[in-house]
Each structure stands twice: as structure tokens, then as C-alpha cells.
Design a protein around this nucleic acid. Structure first.
Lengths: 207, 207
DNA sequence: GTCTATATATCGATAGAC
DNA sequence: GTCTATCGATATATAGAC
């Protein structure tokens, strides 16, 4: 995927950040390599020295967003407690992670919908397939915990597959309305995430 | 917006359907005019005779999706019953409408995120602004009913603005996982929509 | 009305200077 | 390593034949 596997992350990092931000706000297709280069105060040449192609940059951002979410949430699925308690921790972790890395999560979102095409190299096809698989496993994680919650009666007896699908897509919808605020403290993010998860898990109906 | 305001909808209709379908599956940027033309068994010439530009087709699809949703849901907001009862009817109506016109709703979704640019004509800018305004009003409709539901205690005492935002974006997320099935009966759609709304309004937590 | 050229612009990617 | 210059492919939009 990368042109220089042993390359300096000190330069690849900023390029990736700029690219993720541009992809998130303008979309992959409307983002030009010149946009990305300009955002890091350089020209095309720099970008193409560190990445093979525009799509490779996209894949690198998808990869970073996906692994970050996985590493945050996976441990939370294994902890103690009822299905509800674990689901709640996972959901909050997911939303916090999403808000901290909105741009990267937005790229993940685009990546899932990205269609395979003839113009992709074998390595790009494989990388995209691997990332989509990672993403599938991630969704499965939530469904398994939903099923356990139904079994231990901490969750209602509803269709687990439908519930998991609605749940995760509802959480992800946050990347459509959440916009990074300046000086947003980790505490503020945590608090907002908890409120969102509360609305989604408990619903809006009074009891 | 249209090249021929008094034009035959018998030909504009199929072009618009094909375009919405293509926009929804490949995205606006990756869709070419040739794709659209091919989908209706014709060539570019036909498309450009009936629409001024690719973006005008997009706006026409956005317009149709938006007005359709508005006409379906607006009356439901005015009916009798508690806030919850009305919100429920609105939500089901919205999701049914979304499932019946997934492609057009997907275009609406893209339209909201579409950025104004220099290359747009004045008419295009105005049309996009108007549609975005319509979309804002539509969201406001849901928030108003949520507020009424909180006042009459049919809904929990939560932050109305956050709840409305989470609610509507959760409903809309359906267009990411819902794929049209062949021979999907209106009854099946209605039933699926009710299940989705139930999960979102009542949550997954057992009581 | 619909089609077949074709003009024009944009952008991803590469080559080569420094 | 980073920049400038440029090639080549793609796709919007138009002009003109039928």
C-alpha cells in the first residue's frame, strides 16, 4: 500500500490527516491531489513520493480509522457485566472514538460503500476486501453482544440482527451531524457521546 | 432547472429514475452522463436535450425525493394524539417513504452534504439553497413534535434538539443498509418500517 | 427528437530538474 | 526529498448531421 513501508511517519502522518479531512468534507472524488498537497503546504510531488496513488491514501485512512475503532471497542466487548452493560460501554467507546476521529470515520463510511472496479490493482482490491472484512467482523461484535443481552434479559426480546443493524448505523449517523468544535474537551465529548448512546439504547418513549 | 419546463414527463421520468439509481449506487461524481443514457437505452444527446446539465438532473432528483417525503409526513404531524403517537406515525411514514424511494432519498442525503462551488450557476445555487431549506424545515417538523411529546409526557424528559437530531439521522441511516428486494410487498415494507421505528423509539433496553 | 462527432477542461500520474 | 512541467485519460457539454 505504501510506497515506502519504512517511511517517516512524521511526513506521512500530516499528509494522511489532510487527506482524511479533505475526503470527509468534499468526498473522495471531488478531492484532488493538489488539494491535499496544498493543505500540507507542498505540491503534488511530495504526495506522490510518499504514496503510490490517491486511492492508496484513501485505503491508508480507511485502515487507520478501522483499526483505531477496533482497538478501542473490542476489549470492551470482553469485559464483565450484562449484555446491556457491555453494549453500552462499546457504544460509548465507539461514539467517542468517532467524534475524536470524525474525518477518519467518515472515510471508513465511504470505504464500505466503495465499489470494486477494473482500474484497481490487485493489491488495492485485496486491501479493500480486507478492510471490508474487518468492518464486517466489527459489526458482528455488536450483534453478538446484542444476542447475549437478549439472552440475559437485559435487552428486550427483539430481532437481534435488525437491532444490531439499526443500532450501529444509528451510532454511525453521528458523523453526519457531528462537527468538530474547537477546544472540545475530552470530557465534553464523553458526555455528549453518553447522551447520544442513552437516547439510542433507551429510546425516547417515557415509561 | 429543466431545459423544457413544459417537457414530456414520459421521457424525463425514466431518465430521472435511471439517474437516481445510478447516483445512489455509484455516487454523483462517479456517475457519468453516458451511464444514465445507457440505462435508458439511449445516448448523451437525449439526456442533454431534456436536462441542461448533470447537476440539474441531480437537483431534480433531490427535489422529487424531498417533496415526496414532505407530502407524506407533513400531514401526519398535524393529526390528533399525543406527541409520541404523532411522532410514531411520522417516523413510520418517513421510513416507508424512504424504502419505497431509496434511490431518491439517497440523493437527498447526498444533496444535504453537497458543497456550493464557483462552477455552479446562480439558478443552481438558488435551487440547492431552496432544497436545503426545505430539508431544514422538515427536520424542524420532527423537533417540534418531539418537544410536544416531552411536554405531554409521552416522551422522556431529554434534550429535544439532541433527540430529534439522533432520531431523524437514525431513521435516515436505513438507506445505508436497506436494499430494495424484488417483489417486496407494501405490507412487508410497512412491517419492516414499523419494526425499525419501534427499535429506535423504544430502544433496545428491557424494562 | 435523437444521434455522432468533437471541443474543452480537469486531474491523476510520471519524468526529470534541482 | 521536493518541485516544475507535462502527458494521457476521462468526462462534461456542445455542434451539427439526420
Amino acid at each position: 500500500m505504501s510506497k515506502n513501508g519504512d517511511d517517516d511517519p512524521a511526513i506521512r502522518g500530516p499528509i494522511l490527516d489532510a487527506a482524511a479531512r479533505a475526503f470527509a468534507s468534499r468526498g473522495f472524488d471531488k478531492t484532488t491531489i493538489d488539494d491535499i498537497a496544498k493543505a500540507v503546504g507542498a505540491t503534488k510531488g511530495l504526495v506522490y513520493y510518499h504514496f503510490r496513488s490517491k486511492f492508496d491514501i484513501f485505503l491508508a485512512a480507511y485502515d487507520r480509522g478501522m483499526h483505531n475503532a477496533k482497538e478501542t471497542v473490542e476489549p470492551l466487548a470482553e469485559l464483565h457485566g450484562t449484555g446491556l452493560e457491555r453494549l453500552q460501554r462499546m457504544a460509548v467507546g465507539h461514539v467517542v472514538n468517532l467524534m475524536e476521529l470524525v474525518d477518519y470515520h467518515n472515510v471508513v463510511h465511504q470505504g464500505v460503500r466503495y465499489q470494486f472496479s477494473e482500474s484497481m490493482t490487485i493489491y488495492q482490491r485485496d486491501a479493500l476486501a480486507d478492510l471490508n472484512q474487518l468492518r464486517s467482523d466489527y459489526e458482528l461484535l455488536f450483534r453478538r453482544v446484542v444476542e447475549e443481552g437478549i439472552r440475559d434479559h437485559s435487552l428486550r426480546d427483539i430481532d437481534a440482527s435488525l437491532a444490531a443493524r439499526v443500532l450501529l448505523s444509528s451510532l454511525n449517523a453521528a458523523d453526519n451531524w457531528y462537527r468538530e468544535q474547537e477546544n472540545q474537551s475530552p470530557e465534553a465529548i464523553q458526555s455528549l457521546a453518553e447522551d447520544v448512546v442513552d437516547v439510542i439504547l433507551r429510546g425516547v418513549v417515557s415509561r
